[in-house]
Design a protein around this nucleic acid. Structure first.
Lengths: 222, 222
DNA sequence: TCGAACCTTAAGCGATTCTTAACGCGGGCG
DNA sequence: CGCCCGCGTTAAGAATCGCTTAAGGTTCGA
């Protein structure tokens, strides 16, 4: 399902045009003309779903709701230029982007690519440093293998390093940011946390470099 | 507070213009130029809030989140014509309408009046997070098995988590939103409610994740 | 007035996490 | 070359945190 895209569109000429454009752009469009037909498809079979809100049969909005219940697949809605209300309802129901009709096919392609690039358009406070990512909203870190299970201290350390991406961060700054200020004991504590952080990062731990005598640095070089 | 409208806009000339227009239209505009200043205002003091997303200080998006946590006041966002991403994020975070800059003052007035006319632009204000749904109007939560019988506190907890879908929500925020402010006793109370909420959610409780040391998170991943 | 529903508190328990200590390594610097 | 100081790692104890169950206590409606 590498580049499979579901297009739900009842207008025949528009549908044909979009299918052709998507094909030329290297996607694999799957076009259904009827909302009821799209109803029983598994949204997870597609990378992106392009949905026309003005549909016969099952109303487009219902389809969107239905998809959203069981999947996080990016949904891009098509709507008339002036129908702001529909756009808003669609977006609130979880659509990821919209394109107003009429549109240039190139624009649609660009939007789809944008959806794929940043799958989570909303609340994306996410730091990316090479293979390591830190999602400040979710309070979750991840490496090339997927989500990491970090303790609060480990997360704070990684977050600070990611924020200062590429530059050396003082031990003091790290202790300050991550450790309980009440306790002011041995300075070796940070080492332990760094050590465990490294082991959790696995092979991506090479990005977490030691800056001798200063502190640490999170490098973008994979 | 009959026609009180909060305008959060840093551009002076635009702000003046809007204030004047709103006054002439019979509204009572209250203009703050700084996001930080708007931060501590009570959203429920206003009929509508008009919010520029491009703000110095507290970023407009943060303001929107903050308002949405404690209020259902209609929020209308101002954004640049081409910044679709911001519009989408704003709407997903609960804004009720948007106006793209530049705009004719009359258009803004019309949109505000529309907001007031149908305070709920979205027919059913329903949050969908994976298999879990929260209907704010009916004040009812449901999971894949159907409607849940939630107590008021449990509903508030679930609603806040659903509003912040995917983000880690502080225990403090949850206590603040759901529990009686008068009583400020043991911090274990929230645990009990979460526990019961989980048991009512049944198998879908896996979506309600514990963020250790912080709070909880309602994840969309089924 | 009684009962049901609900919120709160308490306490035990298990799990996770933080810190400390100890030991070994290794790179800079004299 | 060899010492010293900083760093890495491991293990273990202590502290914190969260989940659950059970027991009052309050509110509200019948």
């Amino acid at each position: 399902m590498s580049n499979r895209i579901l297009l739900v569109e009842d207008d025949v000429s528009l549908g044909q045009q979009v299918v052709q454009t998507l094909s030329q752009a290297g996607f694999d469009p799957h076009w259904v003309q009827d909302g009821d037909a799209a109803r029983d498809l598994d949204p997870d079979d597609y990378r992106v779903i392009v949905l026309d809100l003005m549909l016969p049969g099952t109303y487009g909005m219902d389809l969107l709701k239905r998809y959203r219940v069981k999947s996080e697949v990016p949904v891009l809605i098509l709507s008339a230029r002036d129908d702001t209300a529909d756009k808003i309802r669609g977006l609130k129901l979880g659509a990821d982007d919209y394109v107003t009709k009429p549109f240039f096919p190139e624009e649609l392609v660009a939007r789809i690519q944008a959806c794929l690039r940043r799958p989570n358009l909303v609340g994306t406070e996410r730091l990316v440093v090479g293979a390591i990512q830190v999602d400040l909203e979710r309070r979750e870190g991840s490496n090339s293998a997927g989500a990491l299970s970090l303790t609060p201290v480990e997360f704070e350390i990684l977050a600070l390093l990611a924020r200062r991406k590429g530059s050396a961060v003082t031990r003091e700054a790290l202790v300050d940011a991550a450790l309980d200020p009440a306790q002011d004991g041995s300075r070796r504590t940070l080492d332990v946390h760094i050590s465990r952080l490294r082991s959790k990062l696995g092979k991506d731990a090479i990005q977490l470099e030691t800056v001798w005598g200063i502190g640490y640095r999170l490098s973008g070089n994979a």
